[in-house]
Design a binder for these strands. Structure first.
Lengths: 370, 370
DNA sequence: TTGAATTGCGCAAACGATTGTGCAACTCTG
DNA sequence: CAGAGTTGCACAATCGTTTGCGCAATTCAA
């Protein structure tokens, strides 16, 4: 029978029962045995607590215990599907361990990030999971968390050496590039996200490595991009596609960027994959129904969430475990229809475009529905 | 100069300065004037606070103030792009007003929802924003929040009469249906999400109304669907597409469902929009690059977030404002390429096969050649 | 019958902030 | 120079829990 009006507290329950708050507290926290509370008293407390719908105040509890049973999550853009899914996995795993999650969106802005982090620390989160915007300034809270553990996710940082969990961005890019090279592509461009962030730069490095070991040029004229938005993707793709020597393939270092590439290609009347092959990062539900269905480097989002939470919780339980562990999770390539096989080693220059209707592509790989 | 080791508190700062915590508190909260703290003391406090990187403990503050400056957000699936965007807007607006957001994902499960809500209440959120899973049981916390305000979003509820903000789901469905009817469609199906949830049912009602006022049948044989997932969408679309009298158009009551429809159509070798027109709900970045680009009923997500936060904060500031306001925000139709014009008023029957009442599962849909 | 052991629980001090009240030490005023 | 007014801050209670310590009352042993 819920009292709609009663902001019942442990204290008031104790008063009603004519016993001390201490006893109620001990009963409710299962310490009845250890403190030799009589069975009778215990049952009376339990019964009354249930009947009144008592929920103990976590605020007061946290204050006393110096532990909030909550963690902070700092994400650059929660509306980016990759981070949305990651956030979901993290929240789910944390809940599984009895932790709540305080989420903030840094909007890829270092100041917002710093402010949000300070706020979370002032709310006494037990630990922090951060996908950092970039290398933090010296007065950034990331550098002096109040002794509370912090684990990075998706993006590593050199400067403050913190434990981290990411997927193997570099290898993902290598895989994608090798895939294209094996299908005869020689000029392969990159539409990048935010230069300077770890995931982005690692992917660029992977691309460069693969190109180099195939003896191919990987100059700056093959890279463009200024951020993880569709518009930035469109602009970058346009730049690349208008180069004198147009790439026959591009890597889009993010699924939102792939949308930009697709859109730019439409505008320029360039057919994917006939005139331009495309490999994108981060699988999404819709990646199988774009035209064409996208070949994708998939990150293990669920594993990322699980690992990062577990790692943080380990640190919370036993701090000061000095060597900041780094877990790099494997990625895999999902082949769909956005890559054209140019045949053995031949570079086929793109023909002057002319719009052909979209072929009724048959369904292929299923989007990663978890 | 950040003390990496100092968990500085207002209290300890006061001790260091040789003054009382009361004074420090008053200075830090800008009450120096009102309490006639001398300029000298004020500056000494401010300086020391800045130098030591002091952040006041919000836990203790909240306990004393009986106000946490935080709100809870309960979402059925944060990885659904619609809710992810909504969450972002809500978090952003709340932050703008100085509130933090505690997010939980109910996974469309009433028990998880109830547990999460209880947890949030025990963490003393000042208010709650909920997209409810369904009509809550009598012992659901939604029915007896501890006197704290709660605003629903996206989904209304009849039972506990709470203020709410949604978009005009019903009118959106009417718009979409009228759009199709105006283009000559007569058999228009619905792929629904979770029957019983408000948004879903309102859309169905809108569809029925539009069909009825055009004198068209809107029977249950034109509706299918069991949830907001791609797989559910595929299954529902398959059911519809295999009916003896196949619809010439379908409404997908959610963007993820549209992906399912697209996929099912591929499998059945039915070309969109040539053989089947499609209108979906909730615009997404990728909706413009699917094949074909999707005609969409768009919800004003930013406005939804803004309104729901503002409404909640009003309630927090001045509770007991009895009439539970409901704000219904307008939607609009974005025309793209997934609807075919069948010509003025001509009823183009789907392949006029033999009239079989509800065949459970005919072998395979005809190859939609025409 | 008495001292020791056991049982069952309450007292009170934290945790770290906020705030109404009080009280010295000045500064005026006449 | 005495009383009144002002200035500048400290005291202590409070928010709701948790927990070390202690103390009555009962039971037991001798």
């Amino acid at each position: 029978m819920p009292h709609t009006t009663a902001p019942m507290s442990l204290k008031s329950l104790a008063r009603e029962l004519g016993i001390s708050a201490a006893t109620v507290s001990r009963v409710l926290s299962g310490q009845a045995e250890r403190h030799r509370i009589s069975i009778a008293t215990r049952d009376r407390v339990l019964g009354a607590a249930r009947a009144s719908g008592l929920v103990v105040d976590q605020l007061a509890r946290s204050l006393r215990l110096r532990r909030t049973q909550s963690i902070g999550l700092l994400i650059p853009d929660i509306s980016n599907p990759f981070f949305a899914q990651l956030a979901r996995q993290i929240e789910r795993r944390a809940r599984h361990h009895g932790y709540s999650v305080l989420i903030a969106d840094s909007e890829e802005d270092a100041d917002v990030e710093a402010a949000a982090m300070t706020l979370m620390l002032s709310r006494r989160v037990d630990g922090l999971i951060v996908a950092p915007v970039g290398t933090p300034a010296t007065d950034n809270p990331l550098r002096s968390l109040g002794g509370r553990p912090c684990v990075l996710v998706d993006r590593l940082l050199e400067q403050p050496s913190l434990p981290a969990v990411t997927s193997d961005h570099r290898h993902g890019a290598e895989l994608a590039t090798q895939h294209l090279i094996a299908r005869g592509h020689r000029r392969i461009g990159c539409v990048e996200g935010s230069p300077g962030t770890f995931a982005n730069d690692a992917r660029i490095a992977g691309w460069r490595a693969a190109m180099a070991s195939a003896g191919l040029a990987a100059g700056d004229d093959l890279v463009a991009g200024t951020g993880y938005s569709v518009d930035a993707g469109v602009a970058a793709a346009r730049t690349l596609l208008r180069r004198a020597e147009r790439p026959t393939a591009v890597l889009a270092l993010g699924n939102v960027l792939a949308l930009g590439v697709l859109q730019a290609a439409r505008e320029e009347r360039i057919i994917v994959p006939d005139d331009l092959s495309l490999v994108a990062f981060d699988d999404q539900l819709w990646a199988a129904v774009t035209s064409p269905a996208l070949t994708i480097v998939e990150q293990p989002i669920e594993a990322l969430g699980r690992e990062v939470v577990d790692l943080l919780l380990e640190r919370i339980a036993a701090p000061l475990d000095d060597p900041p562990a780094r877990r790099i999770l494997p990625v895999r390539l999902i082949e769909r229809e956005s890559v054209r096989d140019l045949g053995a080693g031949r570079v086929v220059p793109a023909p002057p475009a002319q719009r052909t209707p979209d072929p009724p592509a048959p369904a292929h790989g299923r989007a990663g529905a978890r």
